[in-house]
Structure formats: C-alpha cells, structure tokens
C-alpha cells in the first residue's frame, strides 16, 4: 500500500490532476482530481428527487414509479442513477468510452460514490457489468469495470471483478427497442464456474455497476444471472439514466 502511495504521488507529479475543468478545459480555482469548474457543475443534469423508487429515474411525484418500471418488473431491488443522460454528461461518457479518456472514471466514480451515500444500501461485493472479450479488445478497457473498481476502493467494499461473464458477443443495444434488447441479451451472461462451485455470491447482496441505464435490460439480465446463482439481493448504480424514446 505504501508503494502504491509512492507510485500515485509520482503520477500526480507527472500528471497533475488539479489544473483544468474536465468539461470546459479552462483553468480555475478549486478544481481538484480531474474536477469540474463551478460554472459547468451548475449546468450538469443531476437527478433530483422526486425519483422513481425502483430504477431511480426522474418522475413527477415522489413515491411514484416511472412508466418504464410500471410496465416491467425489474429483477433488481433498487437502482440509482446520478445524472440524466444528456448535455455535458453525455459528452463526458462519450469521451470516456470512445475517446480513450480513461481518467474521467475518477470524477465519475466520485459522483457515484457520493450518490451512494444518499441511499441506505449495504452490500458485500461490487460487480461490474461485463464486456465481451472481443468488445474489450476493440475498446481497450471495460468502462464499467473501471468505475466499479474505483467505487469499490472508495466504498471499502471488495470488488468481484469477473462476477459476471459475457459469453455472447451481442450487437450494440442502442438501435434496438426493448423487446429486441431482451432477445439480444438472451443467454449473454454467465457466472464463473469457480464462483458457482465455491458459492462466492451465495446469500450475498451485490452492487451492480454500469455506465448508462436506458431500459434496464442489461442490468436486468445481469441481475437474473446473479440471483439464479444464489445472490440474495442486487442493487444497481449507473452514472446516467437515459429516457428511452
């Protein structure tokens, strides 16, 4: 751990993190650890109460479910999204996933950890939504895994890195409707043989981490496979929730 600290402070010298706002790229006061300036922070679409009691998206009245959750019965216990998927956040996620700007996982996971504190959840493991190895090679890294590992470190809860495996390389979800998405994801996930034999998640509560929540099909399928393998409960945290149109 001490060695890690030394390495981190060495990196801090080579890569100072307190210089520019990650959104507007201007220098400013009080920007730390790839932070954001006051002006940009004000413009971010934080999800404020009232939010859907199930998935955490914005709704009109507290205690009400969103139309999406009313139609379908999500298997997870409760979900939390920090932002609405639009504006600056949309750009940030895009730069993060496709522009190779991995450092953005730092502010993102910070927001997520902070959001987590507003809920009274307790869980035993942090589990990222997996990426198929082929997709991983294409992108170079798993965006959810990076977020999950940071959340795990910040929250002090162990990370179950390969808690779920993606065994089918499915096409991108973005162009599909809800029904197609579910079909698309059929038999896409599995749990490691080792974990099944050891019963790693038997009776445990898990926190599932993903970057964007749209219809909830991905996290739903992941939850299914976790519950099938004996998990007691699954919470879901995502950076942003998009409205499916």
């Amino acid at each position: 751990m001490a060695l890690f600290k030394v390495w981190e402070s060495f990196l801090d010298i080579i890569y100072p993190m307190d210089i520019r706002c990650i959104l507007c790229n201007e220098t400013g006061e009080g920007i730390t650890n790839y932070g954001i300036c006051k002006a940009c922070l004000g413009d971010l679409p934080f999800i404020q109460p009232p939010y859907c009691g199930k998935c955490g998206k914005t709704v009109t009245r507290q205690g009400e479910l969103c139309p999406d959750c009313r139609d379908s019965n999500h298997p997870y216990k409760e979900g939390l999204a920090i932002f609405e998927y639009r504006d600056g956040i949309r750009d940030l996620i895009h730069r993060y996933k496709y522009g190779g700007e991995k450092y953005l996982s730092m502010p993102m996971s910070r927001w997520m950890t902070k959001g987590l504190k507003t809920r009274n959840w307790s869980f035993d493991f942090v589990v990222p939504v997996p990426l198929h190895p082929a997709r991983l090679r294409e992108r170079g890294f798993n965006q959810s895994q990076l977020l999950a590992s940071r959340i795990s470190r910040d929250a002090g809860v162990p990370l179950l890195d390969k808690g779920i495996l993606r065994i089918k390389n499915t096409p991108h979800q973005t162009k599909l409707n809800r029904q197609e998405r579910l079909q698309n994801l059929k038999d896409a996930f599995a749990v490691r043989e080792k974990d099944r034999a050891l019963g790693t998640i038997q009776g445990k509560t898990l926190l599932l981490v993903d970057d964007v929540y749209t219809t909830g099909s991905t996290v739903g399928k992941c939850t299914d496979i976790l519950l099938e393998n004996g998990a007691a409960d699954v919470y879901v945290i995502t950076l942003a929730a998009g409205t499916y149109v």
Binding site: L11, Y15, M17, I19, R20, K102, Y103, S105, M106, L146
Partner: peptide
C-alpha cells in the same frame, strides 16, 4: 496517460 487513465497536462 492514456494507458494508465491519466490526462497529460
């Protein structure tokens, strides 16, 4: 920086 998830200044 790209490899280790940092941004070069």
């Amino acid at each position: 920086g790209r490899a280790i998830g940092r941004k070069a200044d």
